[in-house]
């Protein structure tokens, strides 16, 4: 069996690892057009390497074949030249890696944003305090009780949205409004399954009413251009616009009650 194999197992392993590495880059950066973040790729590769090494070493013969060339490189007198070359190159590579990772760059430090910051239990808006645990959309009940009234409310919410929100969040609620390109981070894309569909309506109310300045201090620095909408919109308008957000995107707010 092993005699027939043309490529040594060590080389095989290296080729597989490199193959996976470049397939990731090819797949995301070229084919899909959305690059794979470096930090993620590093971790991905760590586990790919672990997996590959496991497959290559779980039998005794496999392990021997893998270690064999390395042992030979160190011990075999006939491989003196190769050994010297390798022993020079490896420290140089390590040195280069250390140098390049330590070298200061002009890039701004990385930003950490948590997509869903932890809300407070209670917050103040409109001169009173709201308890996020019990806060509910007063209009949500009409969805079942009075669909006609509900669609009217959604329509009113849509008007509020078009007059106030679409400039940034976009007329398709995809976070691509006319001003979006000027903002970093970009406005939230409500169509994304990872955004409003994960949240309860009370959370949205909190974020809309208190805006960027209302965010908690943890995971700072917070960079959110979201205005403090309680200064511009009424409580009713916020609740209506929340109805609209869910209605338009076809998502339902997170809830724990089964229907």
């Amino acid at each position: 069996m092993t005699q027939k194999r043309r490529i040594p197992r060590l080389l095989q392993m290296v080729l597989i690892i490199l193959g996976v590495y470049f397939s990731f880059i090819l797949l995301f950066d070229v084919v899909l057009g959305q690059l794979i973040p470096k930090s993620l790729l590093t971790m991905y590769m760590l586990f790919v390497v672990a997996g590959v090494v496991m497959v290559f070493t779980f039998t005794e013969e496999g392990a021997q074949e893998l270690v064999g060339p390395i042992k030979a490189l160190v011990e075999d007198p006939s491989k003196k030249t190769v050994r010297n070359v390798v022993f020079v190159i490896v420290p140089l590579l390590a040195g280069y890696y250390t140098y390049s990772s330590m070298m200061p760059s002009f890039e701004a430090p990385m930003e950490l944003r948590t997509i869903h910051p932890a809300p407070p239990t209670k917050f103040k808006a409109y001169g009173k305090s709201f308890n996020l645990a019990t806060l509910e959309n007063p209009y949500r009940k009409f969805q079942k009780e009075d669909p006609a009234k509900f669609s009217e409310l959604v329509k009113a919410g849509g008007d509020v949205y078009i007059q106030n929100c679409q400039y940034c969040h976009g007329d398709k609620l995809d976070g691509k409004g006319p001003y979006a390109s000027g903002l970093n981070p970009t406005p939230l894309n409500f169509q994304d399954v990872g955004t409003i569909a994960q949240l309860q309506e009370s959370f949205l109310f909190w974020r809309i009413a208190t805006g960027g300045p209302g965010l908690p201090a943890e995971a700072a620095p917070w960079i959110s251009s979201m205005p403090v909408w309680q200064d511009f919109l009424t409580e009713d308008e916020i609740w209506k616009v929340i109805l609209f957000l869910y209605d338009y995107t076809g998502r339902a707010p997170r809830s724990w009650a089964h229907e």
């Binding site: 899909l32 973040p37 990385m110 930003e111």
Partner: peptide, 18 residues
């Protein structure tokens, strides 16, 4: 975790596939 250039390239903190 995104570097700024990655952020710019992706057009936001959301990755369409990941």
């Amino acid at each position: 975790v995104l570097t700024n250039s990655e952020l710019k390239s992706l057009g936001g903190p959301y990755h369409a596939y990941l």
